[in-house]
Amino acid sequence: MNIFRFVGDMSHLASFFLLLAKLIYTKSSTGVSLKTQALYLTVFVCRYLDLLVAFVSWYNELMKIFFIAASAYIVYVVATSTRNSNASDTYRVEFLVIPALVLACFVNETHWSKGGWSLNVMEILWAFSIYLEAVAVLPQLKMLHQLEDTTNITMHYMASLGIYRAFYLLNWVYRLYYEGYWHPIAVVAGIVQTLLYADFFILYYQSVLLRLPS
């Protein structure tokens, strides 16, 4: 565990608390894309199936369980929110899910000569979760561009997700250099994902930071 990975994880954790705070204290899910949240839940469930077969550390176990539970709760709250206007949550998610699944079937870390079929299916689902996470923010980004009244907390939520991605890139540079750790699937998808946030940070700068003191 290096400092970049830890800061990235804490920023990811903070993003959950920001979103939960928005949902609980404003009692409104306006501006929150149910599609993005459902994609994140899919990502965590597919990636953390290894909870059942591998133990890395208590830190990893608890974070994984929290990510699954929190995203499931967020999906539940947003889906059942009566005041949510989903009119602008119009992204066609099949254009994200299907290509991610097809790509995962062909580009993955399976070793069919070693482990059983279940471990290899987990490898395919792991790759799927990596590809899907890279693009899962797109429905939320589309909403932010369409809505004028996005609350600052939703923007801070997105910013903390972007910081999480940026620090994971630094973490991979560090781990490649000092540990020889190298997962090309995660790194390439991670770079794509971080680039998508560059678009968001321009919006963040224009709509939040430039507007702060009036």
Partner: peptide, 10 residues
Amino acid sequence: DAFGDSKDEL
């Protein structure tokens, strides 16, 4: 490596 041995990130 079995799944999980080298996948220690979130």
